[in-house]
């Protein structure tokens, strides 16, 4: 199947009994896993949608997921600060996590897997970035990266760097080998402070590196005229990799209530963001040439997370209406 975003279509739609918070495919593309507004880890089999809920890893909501590179294990990060390893192909709901560690003080908001497969990055409200041995859960490296909540962490595809982005729009590049700060990207447009409501809002909610290595994209929201009332618009800050200068601010006209929860690049260099807000749920697509999106695909309900399948042709989306949906990015 060729990649063609203009022929995108929802091909699977499976329900849970609570609103979903996050989703990830396993790297062998057998299942999609979801976190929800409960303490369980929910696995849907891609072939038939069969659902299994695993428990025992977390006391409260799972906010972040990542698959190991070999696809044999799924890691979950919770609002309880715990990081849990699970066997992807566990037979039934009686399976318990392989291991659970107290990884952070406060929420874990984001996880990512190193391109070499050996490391897992975690980050959260304690401002720490921690790198874990994917195989045995040992702490490999940690550093205080931010003073405020870290919303996003992502490895560079080369494996040499890891990025962290926080509530205040600080976006930092670190050396994986040493934990040394390399440089910062100015993503403060993704942060807003509302004096009337006295709240900091926004943050770096998605980070992605283009396949050709020329751009670093950071996503979130701007024009937050009413943060407490969900009035804000999705925004991408596209940086030139070499200079770290802002190349473009990419927007989605007419979406007056939305936020980008995650960014990922497609194989052809198209940037994809998942948007959720008062205007509904969308997959929004940009190329590096323009400021406006080149296409958007409306999802049946407000989305909160997405994941691109290992083959790059399907997208899983986690929704408020308790459904996980699989969208095919091309013709049937």
């Amino acid at each position: 199947m060729p990649l063609d975003i203009k022929q995108a279509a929802v091909v699977n739609d499976w329900a849970h009994d609570r609103p979903l918070t996050c989703c990830r495919f396993d790297r062998q593309h057998r299942y999609v896993f979801c976190g929800a507004q409960d303490a369980g880890l929910h696995r849907f089999q891609l072939s038939d949608g069969a659902k299994v809920t695993f428990s025992g890893g977390h006391e409260t909501w799972i906010r972040a997921l990542t698959s190991t590179l070999d696809g044999n294990q799924m890691l979950s990060g919770g609002a309880d600060g715990k990081l849990a390893w699970w066997d992807v192909a566990a037979a039934d709901a009686t399976a318990k996590p392989v291991r659970v560690i107290e990884a952070h003080k406060g929420w874990i908001r984001c996880l990512d897997t190193h391109s070499g497969g050996t490391l897992i990055a975690s980050a959260g409200n304690d401002g720490m970035v921690r790198l874990w041995n994917a195989a045995d859960g040992a702490l490999v490296r940690e550093f205080k990266a931010h003073d405020r909540d870290i919303y996003c962490v992502a490895f560079h595809p080369s494996g040499e760097f890891v990025f962290s982005g926080d509530l205040m729009g600080q976006l930092k590049q670190w050396k994986v080998e040493t934990g040394e700060l390399v440089r910062e990207f100015d993503a403060k447009e993704l942060h807003s402070y509302n004096g009337g409501q006295q709240v900091d809002f926004g943050g770096v909610r998605g980070i992605a590196v283009s396949p050709d290595g020329k751009f670093l994209a950071a996503g979130g929201l701007y024009k937050a005229t009413n943060p407490l009332g969900a009035v804000h618009e999705p925004l991408v800050q596209l940086f030139e990799w070499e200079s770290a200068k802002l190349a473009k601010s990419q927007v989605a006209d007419d979406i007056k209530q939305g936020v980008l929860w995650r960014l990922q690049y497609l194989a052809d260099g198209t940037l994809m963001g998942v948007d959720g807000g008062g205007n509904g749920g969308y997959l929004i697509f940009w190329n590096s040439e323009g400021e406006k999106d080149i296409h958007r695909f409306q999802l049946p309900n407000l989305a909160r997370d997405m994941d691109l399948s290992p083959n790059g042709l399907h997208v899983a989306t986690a929704h408020y209406d308790k459904h996980v949906r699989i969208t095919r990015l091309g013709p049937a």
């Binding site: 943060p227 407490l228 969900a230």
Partner: peptide, 14 residues
């Protein structure tokens, strides 16, 4: 101020 958190109640309460 302010607790009128129709949006992102948990982040704002944090």
């Amino acid at each position: 101020s302010n607790y009128d958190t129709h949006n992102e109640n948990f982040n704002f309460h944090l």
